[in-house]
Design a protein around this nucleic acid. Structure first.
Length: 431
DNA sequence: TCTGGGGTCCTAGGACCC
DNA sequence: TCTGGGGTCCTAGGACCC
């Protein structure tokens, strides 16, 4: 059996722990640049606020309605998440963190000694008490069925935050009442396709013969179908080495200057290098992409993307920034207004086994550059991110203050809440 | 005026190699 | 006039997840 522990409206709930005045109100949390709605309270969902709507449209859609909106505060959410996962680990030996707001537990061997329904109820109550986060727990024979169960636990208060599907009878009953587009692995496109094939609910899909699935759907979909039938075949065991790492941003305004774009891209490359070093990896492919504003139909649309293969795999800031900068020059088209750009690194291998280039002439230079990156990392860890950066990452100084703005400030967060749990200055006073 | 960011896997076509 | 078979790599796009 598997359990899914899933936070209820995670980002909103994190904020409410420190802002109890937000309880009972429609609350939304926004994406970077306060662009889109990424999380909603139940009250906001009940109003009909859809996920992903642009923030500025809320005022048009809901005139006169008081909606509390907050910028996203990932430092806070990450810390809250870590606390929750730590509690789950006290309750189950094998925990797979699947995302910031959910984790799976492999419960093999626990069925005999525990009443799983009570186990789940206790865990949910403990997380609520210790961290303040409401969670819903679903338990089933496969991870997909655990997901189904967690949705029931979330939707109906009668489950007391934990729903267990532990018999074929319960499985069939649960699937018969389950909308296809809420199944893990079925998105808009498959939902539409299934509808056109006359499949009306999840049980009807599960009952289709294997050959039918295989003929009409791509490979990964077969796994979803098997899981619905109680055959576990989707593994979420944590992978420590990612296959690709991406740093990208949309700009609050638009960028026309090559130099400004290059400065941003240098910062993305630097972030990618840091992420690589954090997971003890190196990459040998670096991709840069830039694009104009998709939504501005009155402006020319352009999207440029280019790879560069590094002679020697690297996680070195200097080398990745130089590579990214060179690629940027090749895809940059003057006269356009750019809205979004990013750097992707791939071809990732462990940094313990770097294959040197046959023609690498100056191995010592590489070692020196790596040592510099390591030193910069430790300074920035201690003194704060971007205390030390390459000159290429530096934005022009503000003429008024004479100070150069930081990359981390290049995003708008007008409705930002404090880092209650990670910054001493932000700790709330207790009277 | 204002429209997120970070991943995974799969497929298909074109360029190029032998 | 007739025009193969087996690869790799890159690009681009589409599906899904959070």
């Amino acid at each position: 059996m598997y359990a899914l522990i899933d936070c209820d409206n995670c980002f909103v709930s994190c904020e409410r722990v420190f802002r109890p005045d937000l309880e009972g109100k429609p609350v939304v949390v926004l994406s970077n640049n306060d662009g889109c709605v990424v999380a909603r309270s139940n009250e906001a969902k009940a109003l009909g606020i859809k996920e992903g709507v642009p923030f500025y449209q809320l005022a048009e859609q809901f005139p006169g309605v008081k909606i509390e909106a907050l910028s996203s505060n990932y430092t806070l959410y990450g810390d809250m998440s870590a606390r929750i996962m730590a509690i789950v680990r006290m309750y189950a030996p094998r925990v797979e963190v699947y995302s910031i707001d959910e984790c799976f537990c492999d419960l093999e061997g626990m069925e005999q000694t525990f009443d799983l329904k009570r186990w789940g109820e206790e865990l949910a109550a403990r997380i609520r008490q210790w961290v303040g986060m409401p969670v819903s727990i679903g338990i089933g024979q496969t991870r997909t069925l655990a997901k189904v169960a967690s949705r029931y636990a979330k939707t109906y208060a009668g489950y007391n935050k934990c729903c267990v599907i532990d018999s074929d009878e319960k499985r069939r009953k649960a699937l018969a009442g389950f909308p296809l587009n809420k199944v893990w692995g079925i998105g808009r496109a498959f939902d539409a396709k299934l509808a056109s094939l006359g499949v009306r609910n999840t049980l009807e899909l599960a009952d289709k013969p294997e050959g039918w699935i295989r003929m009409l759907f791509p490979l990964p979909f077969e796994n979803t179908w098997r899981e619905l039938n109680g055959v576990s075949c989707i593994d979420t065991t944590e992978v420590h080495e990612k296959k690709s790492i991406c740093t990208s941003r949309s700009f609050p305004g638009m960028i026309t200057s090559r130099e400004e774009l290059r400065t941003h891209i240098s910062n993305y490359a630097s972030r990618c290098a840091e992420k690589l070093r954090r997971q003890h990896s190196v990459c040998n492919i670096l991709t840069v992409f830039i694009m104009t504003n998709w939504f501005r139909k009155d402006l020319e649309w352009y999207s440029g993307m280019m790879n560069v293969t590094l002679h020697t795999a690297s996680a070195n800031t200097t080398e990745l920034v130089a590579a990214a900068s060179a690629v940027t020059d090749r895809i940059f088209r003057p006269g356009l207004s750019y809205k979004r750009a990013g750097v992707i690194v791939s071809g990732i291998t462990p940094d313990s086994a770097i294959q040197l280039d046959m023609f690498e002439s100056d191995v010592d230079k590489r070692k020196r550059l790596d040592a510099i990156s390591g030193t910069v990392d430790s300074i920035n860890r201690r003194m704060g991110t971007e205390t030390v950066v390459l000159a290429a990452q530096q934005y022009p100084a503000d003429p008024k203050t004479g100070k150069a703005p930081h990359f981390k400030d290049a995003i708008l967060h007008n409705l930002r809440t404090p880092c209650y749990t990670t910054n001493l200055q932000d700790i709330i006073p207790v009277k």
